[in-house]
Design a protein around this nucleic acid. Structure first.
Lengths: 144, 144
DNA sequence: GCAGTCGTAACAGTGAAGGTTGCAACAGCC
DNA sequence: GGCTGTTGCAACCTTCACTGTTACGACTGC
């Protein structure tokens, strides 16, 4: 499966901003976050833009500009982040519609849809159990 | 997310072969399955090749060649199919390693890895609960 | 007005998956 | 032995989403 790193990068950025703010700083720049993630600042700005639309972060412009959290890390779950950055479903249907004249071709999509929805619901439930505060604590506990 | 239809197509093919065999036929051809799926026979052969390596189907060559189930649909779960056709994880890490000199860059991967492993385990558990026989029954119950 | 940073468009690079063509290998049948 | 239908598989193109990069306008505090 062509797996996606968007959730990972978003969690990284949020944890970074959260820690930076706890160290007394007002805002973090996309440049700083990009250095930690090891990528281009524009990639970070794009991703944080999606998180801003979801109400998770805020941005300031002008001199002394940058990004700050819109809520406490405790009140943000991985599900919030997931919904902000991953629009599509975990499993996809056929790219071309199957033969509707065939019994299987006709019934397979509703059948799989029902199964997939149940699984996605379970995944959402798991993601909702983890807050970004949990993530930051796990990060800080990593052995060096 | 760039979602994947491989699991869907594999389930479609297996349900088709199972139903066809119940109608008294010995083997199904990739051509027939491709018609129902609405794609190219080579795509089906590639996918069924992976299922054969996993011991789910068998193939015959020569005249009267084609594909047949290696086991009953009752004893095949979506997890078996998933493991046969989806090698990678559901969520990926960074594509370039993050800055190991940064606390967050250093700890984020083990932190997310732990979380993701738990979620994948849950998904596997859900997939293992559904047999291909369940899928076929759902398919046949679809309103027309 | 200057400087620093965001906001966003435009485009190239990358990688996975699907689609297509072609052909050798195989096995039953005449 | 030759014919036929099908798998097995390699090679290549297309498509698509995402990432990476450059460029530049917009904004804001000094």
């Amino acid at each position: 499966m062509s797996a996606n790193s968007r959730l990972t990068i978003a969690a990284h950025a949020l944890a970074w901003i959260g820690l930076y703010q706890r160290q007394g700083h007002e805002v973090a720049t996309s440049e700083q976050i990009a250095t930690s993630v090891n990528t281009n600042p524009v990639v970070i700005r794009r991703l944080l833009g999606e998180l801003r639309r979801a109400g998770l972060v805020e941005s300031r412009r002008g001199v002394g500009a940058g990004w700050s959290l819109a809520r406490e890390l405790e009140s943000m779950t991985l599900l919030d982040v997931y919904e902000a950055v991953e629009p599509g479903p975990l499993f996809a249907m056929h790219r071309t519609t199957p033969d509707q004249g065939c019994v299987v071709g006709h019934g397979i999509q509703p059948a799989m849809q029902g199964i997939y929805e149940g699984i996605e619901e379970t995944v959402r439930h798991e993601l909702a159990r983890v807050t970004l505060e949990n993530v930051l604590q796990d990060v800080l506990e990593a052995p060096r």
